[in-house]
Write a protein that binds this DNA or RNA. Structure first.
Lengths: 218, 218
DNA sequence: GCAGAACCGTACCGTACGGTACGCCTGCGT
DNA sequence: ACGCAGGCGTACCGTACGGTACGGTTCTGC
C-alpha cells in the first residue's frame, strides 16, 4: 500500500495536479451519487487506471480519506480583521463568521462531505468524521474564540467560558438547518435557505449579542 | 413484493410480535455494526429465514424503512401539561422539552437512526430521512409550538413567528452536540454529554427566555 | 388426524465491486 | 536509439451480499 507522503490525519497532504484531478473526479461522483462511489467509476471519470488509484491511495478508504481531506482543507474562510475592536467592528466580525459558517454548511460540498463522514462513522471508522470536524466547526471555533475573548477583554462581551459562548453561537446560527439538509429534507432546499442567509445571519448575531453583549440595553 | 399493510410513509404500520422481534434484531445489528446490515445477519440474529424477511418487508430497503419507522415512532416523549399557564409552569414545560430533546438526541438509538437516514439520503433515497425528521425534530416542534403560542397569548413570551422561535430553541438546546456525535467525535461521548444534560438544559432555557421572554428584566 | 399455510434452514444464483495482473503506449533520460 | 518508469485500459479473480428456490418442520383450522 504505497501512499503519497502523509504526515498525519490532520496535516495536509501534497498532491500533484494529476492527483488533484483524480480527487476532483472523486468528489464530483460523491456529490452526484452519494457514497455509492466505486473505484471503477472514479478511474473512468478521471481517465486513469484503477491500478494507479491503488498505487496512489492504497485502497478505497484511502481515496475517500484523501478526497475528503483535500476538499475540507480547501474551505478557507476569509480571515477576519481583528485589529479594530470597537463595538461595530466586533459585530461585523461576528456577523461575518455567521455568514461564512452558514454559507459553507449549506453548500453541496459540505453536505456531501458531512454525509460521507457520517456514513463512515457508522462503521467504526471515524477518521473522516475527525477530518470534517477539524476543518469545519473546529476551524471556525479556533478563529472565532480569540475574537470573542478579545471582545470580552474590551468589555464588549460577557461570558464565563468562551467554549460555551462559541457553541451557543453555533447553535444560534445553524439551528436545525444542517441536520435537515443532511437528512434530505425536501422542504428545505439550499436555494430556499440561501435566500434567507442574510436575514438569518442578522437574527443570529442579534441574538448572540442579546445573550452575551455587555451592553444589556441592546 | 408482499408487504404488511402500509398506509403511508408516515403512518404507523402494525407489526406482529414476531415481526417486532425481527425489527429489534435489525435495530440491534444497526446499532452494533452501523449500516453494514445484511439480510443474512438479520435472519440469523432473529432466527428466521431470509425468505420470511423478503416476504414481510419486500427487500432490504423495506426492512430498513420498517425498522427505522418502527423505532422512531416509539420515541414518545411524555406529554407536557398545558393547563397551568403561569410563568413557572411555562418555564417548566420548556425545560422539559429541552431535556427530552437532548436526552433523545444523544441516545445510541437516535444516533444510529440518524446515521442510517443520513446514509440513506446520500443515495437519492430520502424516505428514511423524512421518517426520522418527522418523528424527531418535527414531533417535538408540533408539540412545542402550541405551548409557545399559548405562552405568547398569556403575554409570557414575545415573538413574531413561532417557527423561528422553535428553531432558535432547537439551536440553543442542541448546539453542535448532534453533528459531533453523528461524526463520531471522540471528545464528546454520550456519557460525557449525559452528565451535563441538566446544566445544559438550564442554560438553554435561560437563554431562550432571555431572547423571547416578555419580562425583559429576567 | 389431516390438509394446507406459515416458516425455518440452507443451498444456490447472479451480480457488483474491491483489488490484482498484464499488455501496451508515451515520454524522458542517457 | 534505446531502455525504462509511469501510467492507461482492460481483463480477470475472489468474495460478499441481495435475492430466490426448495425440502423439511411446526402450527392452525376443520
Amino acid at each position: 500500500m504505497l501512499r503519497v507522503p502523509m504526515i498525519s490525519k490532520i496535516e495536509e497532504e501534497v498532491f500533484t495536479p494529476r492527483q488533484q484531478a483524480v480527487l476532483t473526479a472523486a468528489l464530483d461522483l460523491l456529490v452526484e451519487n452519494g457514497d455509492g462511489l466505486t473505484m471503477t467509476a472514479v478511474a473512468r471519470r478521471a481517465s486513469c487506471s484503477k491500478e494507479t488509484l491503488y498505487k496512489w491511495f492504497g485502497d478505497r478508504d484511502g481515496l475517500l480519506t484523501a478526497t475528503v481531506q483535500w476538499q475540507a482543507a480547501k474551505v478557507r474562510m476569509p480571515q477576519v480583521n481583528r485589529s479594530g475592536l470597537n463595538a461595530k467592528a466586533l459585530r461585523a466580525s461576528i456577523e461575518q463568521f455567521a455568514r461564512d459558517l452558514l454559507t459553507v454548511l449549506i453548500g453541496e460540498i459540505s453536505i456531501t462531505l458531512n454525509r460521507t463522514a457520517v456514513t463512515h462513522a457508522a462503521q467504526e471508522k471515524d477518521s473522516l468524521g475527525a477530518i470534517v470536524l477539524e476543518n469545519g466547526p473546529m476551524a471556525i471555533r479556533r478563529r472565532l474564540k480569540p475574537i470573542l475573548e478579545a471582545g470580552r477583554d474590551a468589555r464588549l462581551l460577557r461570558f464565563d467560558n468562551s467554549e460555551d459562548a462559541y457553541r451557543t453561537f453555533f447553535g444560534l446560527v445553524v439551528r436545525d438547518v444542517q441536520i435537515r439538509l443532511l437528512l434530505g429534507d425536501k422542504t428545505l432546499t439550499q436555494i430556499n435557505v440561501e435566500a434567507n442567509i442574510e436575514a438569518d445571519v442578522q437574527t443570529a448575531t442579534d441574538q448572540f449579542f442579546a445573550l452575551y453583549g455587555a451592553d444589556k440595553t441592546q
